[in-house]
């Protein structure tokens, strides 16, 4: 399973490095979302600083949808879906590999966006450890949930619209918890960030376990 996960994750990242679709499209999209938030709040600096964590995570959330869609688009061209089924790879390994690739892409995106938030909105740092750990755990949760639903949606008609409908309500608690963690980490609220982190961990664990258990069914049935 782990071997197959490495293989699939490496393959996805290699494709990304060669094609640079996520890099050239998702990252600019996320930056654009941030910029638009800036326009919408009309340069009210205090408000933007207050809202920065939330805006950041909304941008990440929207980008994660694109990343997941991309992750399954490469499995949909010219019979690669059948190729994956015929390959003899462990489905759990396929799931973990695809999640790992999406997590790495998301983390790279978060670093970029984080710099963007600091530059555009001018936020200060309070608890860097919480910031980094919560970002990692939230990315795992987003990627795991996204990959499960991406697989479900990739086999049906109208997948482009079905995926957001399935994923967004489900990952709403991630948005909530990650935002609260970041607010605590940035010192803009007095909430207990580590408590929220436990929620992120629970979400990530549930979805990783679910994907590992159900992916063989999903690969076959979709």
């Amino acid at each position: 399973m782990w071997r197959d996960a490495l293989l699939v994750g490496g393959k996805d990242l290699r494709i990304e490095i060669r094609g640079r679709v996520a890099t050239m499209q998702v990252a600019p999209y996320a930056m654009l979302v941030l910029l638009l938030f800036g326009f919408a709040f009309d340069q009210d600096h205090n408000l933007l600083t207050q809202a920065a964590p939330g805006l950041f995570w909304v941008a990440v959330l929207l980008s994660s949808l694109l990343a997941v869609q991309r992750s399954f688009a490469i499995e949909a061209t010219d019979g690669t879906r059948d190729g994956l089924r015929l390959s003899g790879l462990d489905p759990a390994g396929i799931f973990l590999g695809k999640v790992a690739a999406v997590v790495i892409e998301l983390v790279a995106l978060e670093v970029l966006l984080g710099v963007g938030v600091v530059v555009l909105f001018g936020t200060r740092l309070h608890d860097p450890a919480l910031l980094v750990v919560s970002a990692l755990v939230a990315s795992v949760g987003l990627a795991a949930a996204g990959t499960v639903y991406g697989m479900i949606a990739s086999g049906v008609r109208g997948r482009e619209t079905l995926l957001p409908l399935l994923v967004l309500p489900v990952v709403a608690p991630v948005l909530l918890a990650a935002t609260q963690c970041w607010m605590a980490a940035l010192g803009s609220s007095t909430t207990d960030g580590w408590r929220w982190l436990s929620l992120l961990v629970a979400f990530g664990v549930i979805y990783l376990a679910l994907g590992v258990v159900s992916f063989s069914t999903l690969v076959e049935e979709t």
């Binding site: 479900i152 608690p173 929620l199 979400f203 069914t217």
Partner: peptide, 30 residues
């Protein structure tokens, strides 16, 4: 979304169980 009834039953059953399994998390979060 249609398709093979057996596949649809399996995938939607998985989705339903997960949705409800997330209720505690949603509860704490909210």
């Amino acid at each position: 979304t249609g398709g093979n009834p057996e596949s649809r039953a399996l995938t939607s059953a998985i989705v339903a169980v997960v949705c409800v399994a997330l209720v505690p998390i949603d509860h704490y979060a909210t």
